[in-house]
Simulated scan of single mutants.
Amino acid sequence: MDSKFPMRNTTLCYLEQDDAYLMLHRVTKKNDLNHDKWIGVGGKFEPFESPEDCLLREVQEETGLTLTSYRCRGVVTFLLGELTEYMFLYTADAWTGTLVKDAARNEGILEWVPKEQVEQLPIWEGDKIFFRLLEEDRPFFSLKLRYEDDTLAEAVLDGKPL
């Protein structure tokens, strides 16, 4: 990895049930880029993992659930200072197991949030864009989001500025 321009790969998944998303309120970790934000479940790739390997492992670790029906909705490229992050965005609508609310204790608190209330939560500005794309059931998309500190400075959808 070029240390001057670090890159990382991550997954993020929104489990859907009864017109609500399972969301993680990130309140636990110190020095967390996502501190106090509401996000989906997921995390960083481990060596030799595919996006699906990472997705299934992270969802299991953070929720106790094993996904049985999921869909890759798009790739979100985050530009955060010197860091480039490629996030594979998924939704899931079926799983086995029982939700273990404290499974995410190292990350935050899991809660089912009605979809119409998501935008009132403290979420990243760019997340509002991909929530809209999910709501529209848009086919696979590529979204580039450039942040300056916590402020969204640029958004590009499928190569076209928004």
Rank of each mutant, 00 (worst) to 15 (best):
D2R: 11
R8C: 15
T10M: 13
T10E: 15
T11F: 08
E16R: 15
E16P: 07
D18F: 08
A20S: 14
L22M: 04
L22D: 06
M23S: 04
L24C: 10
L24W: 01
L24M: 07
H25C: 10
H25E: 12
H25M: 09
H25Y: 13
R26N: 05
H35T: 12
H35K: 15
W38S: 06
G40D: 04
G42M: 02
G43W: 08
G43I: 03
K44G: 15
K44V: 14
K44L: 12
P47A: 14
P47W: 09
F48H: 15
E49I: 08
S50R: 09
P51T: 10
E52Q: 12
D53I: 10
D53M: 09
E58S: 10
G64V: 02
T66V: 13
T66I: 15
T68P: 07
S69V: 14
S69N: 14
R73F: 02
F78D: 09
G81E: 11
T84D: 06
T84R: 15
F88M: 11
L89D: 06
Y90C: 02
T91V: 09
D93H: 10
T96K: 14
L99H: 04
L99S: 05
K101L: 11
K101M: 06
D102F: 10
A104E: 01
R105F: 11
N106C: 11
E111W: 00
W112R: 02
L121K: 02
L121F: 00
P122A: 00
I123V: 07
W124E: 09
W124G: 13
K128G: 08
K128I: 03
I129L: 04
I129D: 00
R132M: 04
L134P: 03
L134D: 00
E136K: 08
P139R: 08
F140H: 04
K144S: 09
R146V: 12
R146P: 05
R146K: 11
E148P: 03
D149Q: 12
D150T: 14
E154V: 05
L157R: 04
D158T: 04
K160N: 08
L162V: 06
